[in-house]
Design a protein around this nucleic acid. Structure first.
Length: 570
RNA sequence: GGGCCUGUAGCUCAAUUGGUUAGAGCAGAGCGCUCAUAACGCUUUGGUUGGGGGUUCGAGUCCCUCCGGGCCUACCA
């Protein structure tokens, strides 16, 4: 029994996320957490919405709502959808919470005391028409390098040259199109990351088991050019966490807020505090997960995120934690994911291309998506969603292999023995062989889960399901029944126990179906098996069950074609 | 431009980190079974591991080079 703190990257607040976002962090973190809980570990799974920044303000303006109201509504929407996908978050927080305000200001104060904050006067583009400062990305103009007329202030998408907004010819606001822009002097706080470069590198070099994807991205930032650069951690915005030094005002920083990337990871901690508050616990309850001086020394902390988030989790956030000179828990393992593409291209919000989380739930139950996404997770490379692959995965794995196994066993039993585990007969070599096979597969399955190799884990789980069909085919209870009903009873008793075991083992990936399977078997609480032979004796003769409804309906070719056309985009 | 990842069967992926004959699932072919969601099981077709060169007793794995795909490059998050 160990203690695992697990965080999923925070989904941004400005809209409903698509399936690529889902498989990039939330879904794998849930499968991992469910597995560890089932194994009896103490687990805390944390997620939250990331609510600050210019895009949130613009999305709110577009919706015609005050930003605070907009974020509150979108948080509720995202929470509902997460519930719809059976995410087992212990807490789904908000980066705009009071807890995060306090903690973010606390960290800023500590960093300032440690001499890691520098005040810098800089020039920022202000748009009079929009009444706001514009981030580089929101300034458009003609590229001085290639003449492309929709170049952005940070980079020209046409020639990929990196730009500064002042380089643009005829710059305009990307929000309003206004050319009424001016450069204004404004003061900002910079986090002196560069001073901690060596400390970070030592820390990262000590992480021998991190994936290449993770360490290579981190090392790149540490060593490229002049090395790790200092980073602005404040912005001229209304919506955000006001710049304060602990609980004291910060002279000269009135009206400014912390940069979203400074406060977002701190929300991992704040959300844990929100969890304690919501469950009526005191500060010690969350501090034992985060403070190594208050009980977090034995915590194993795993972060899930897509690859674009890695620099912030390997560099900026650790600088915040280490720089505070307080004993905060640092991440032990980062699980990074590549991208999920849609039918060979990118998911696109603006073009309506691909599938969004709310739409997915309207089409089919969450387990269908969970299974396909997790068994095709972009772990080693970008992955590709196609309707054909989705249909095949759902129909073959879920309907034919698992669903049909449950169906054939329970229906056969009902017709020959009634809805009760039959008695009589004995187990022989055939059953011993199945027990050995499943024990071997289970060991592999557990090893894959512990290594967070989810694709490989699903392959092992599938093989465990297949073993049931192989057994049934070899044992032939439908033939044996005619000459030796007692032996047929033993076979079915064993097969019904396999169903119960599948219900237990499948829960990390398809929790709803697992619950349905166990409910059909009239099992209240199912523990993860210590020993396969014992687990396959859990349902004794005389135990009743109910033949379940069809667990997984197949996706027909017509349905697939219809969905494919519907989501093709404009 | 720079850096990183990647290329294995028609498709999606493996290959115990340099070790016998490169394996699975899907798709295809054949056979079997009839309990079951026309489901299941068995057998089987299919690869010069992107091309070329090198190191080695031995290379899918290491090195060089060429070709293809992808990502990152710090103010979108």
């Amino acid at each position: 029994m160990a203690r695992y703190l697990i965080t999923s990257a925070l989904p941004y607040i400005n809209g409903i996320k698509h399936l690529g976002n889902l498989i990039g962090s939330q879904l794998p973190s849930d499968a991992y957490a469910r597995y560890l809980r089932a194994k009896g570990h103490e687990v805390l799974l944390i997620c939250a919405t990331d609510e600050h920044g210019t895009p949130a303000e613009l999305a709110a303006a577009k919706a015609g709502k005050p930003v605070a109201e907009f974020c509150a509504e979108m948080w509720a929407v995202q929470k509902d959808i997460a519930d719809g996908f059976a995410m087992s978050f212990d807490h789904f927080g908000r980066s705009s919470s009071d807890r995060n305000h306090k903690l973010t200001q606390h960290f800023a104060g500590r960093l300032a005391e440690a001499g890691l904050i520098e005040e810098v006067m800089e020039k920022q583009v202000y748009s009079n028409a929009d009444g706001r400062y514009l981030p580089d990305r929101y300034i458009e103009g003609t590229c001085p390098n290639c003449g492309y007329d929709k170049a952005r202030g940070d980079q020209c998408e046409n020639c990929t040259k990196q730009l500064d907004p002042v380089d643009l010819i005829e710059p305009r606001s990307a929000i309003s199109g206004s050319t009424d822009l001016e450069l204004r002097e404004t003061k900002h706080l910079y986090l002196r990351q560069s001073t901690m470069r060596e400390k970070l590198e030592t820390w990262i070099d000590g992480q021998k088991d991190w994936p290449i994807l993770t360490t290579s991205i981190a090392k790149k930032w540490l060593n490229e050019g002049d090395g790790l650069q200092d980073r602005g951690i404040t912005r001229d915005l209304d919506w955000g966490i006001p710049v304060k030094r602990g609980d004291r005002a910060w002279p000269g920083m009135d009206g400014k807020v912390f940069y979203v990337w400074f406060d977002a990871p701190i929300e991992y901690i704040a959300a844990t505090a929100e969890w304690a508050d919501a469950s009526g616990q005191d500060d010690a309850a969350w501090e034992r997960w985060w403070r190594t001086d208050k009980g977090a020394g034995d915590v194993h902390y795993v972060q899930f995120m897509a690859k674009d988030n890695i620099p912030f989790h390997t560099l900026s956030f650790p600088v915040t934690l280490m720089g505070s000179a307080e004993p905060w828990k640092l991440v032990d393992y980062i699980k990074g994911f590549n991208w999920l593409n849609y039918e060979g291209g990118k998911f696109s919000t603006s073009q309506g291309r691909g599938i969004f989380m709310d739409q997915a739930l309207e089409i089919l139950p969450s387990d269908y998506w969970r299974w396909w996404l997790l068994s095709n997770a972009p772990e080693s490379d970008d992955a590709n969603f196609t309707w054909e692959s989705f249909q095949s995965g759902v129909n073959k794995d879920l309907a034919d292999v698992l669903g049909n196994f449950v169906s054939r066993v329970t229906k056969f039993c009902r017709s020959k023995f009634g809805e009760v585990v039959p008695e009589g007969g004995t187990y022989g070599e055939m059953e011993a062989a199945v027990i050995a096979e499943i024990a071997r597969r289970l060991e592999a399955y557990e090893a894959r889960m512990e290594a967070i190799e989810l694709r490989k884990a699903t392959a092992e789980l599938r093989a465990i399901w297949v073993a049931g069909n192989e057994y049934l085919q070899a044992a032939e209870p439908w033939s044996v029944f005619k000459t030796d009903p007692g032996r047929a009873a033993a076979i079915i008793r064993f097969a019904l126990n396999l169903i119960r075991l599948y219900g237990v083992l499948s829960a990390p990936f398809i929790p709803v179906a697992s619950r349905d399977i166990l409910a059909a078997m009239h099992v209240e609480d199912a523990e993860w098996p210590e020993d396969v032979k014992t687990a396959l004796a859990a349902l004794p003769a005389g135990h009743t069950f109910s033949v379940p409804e069809v667990l997984f309906a197949k996706i027909t070719d017509e349905r697939r074609d219809e969905l494919e056309a519907r989501f093709a985009g404009s």
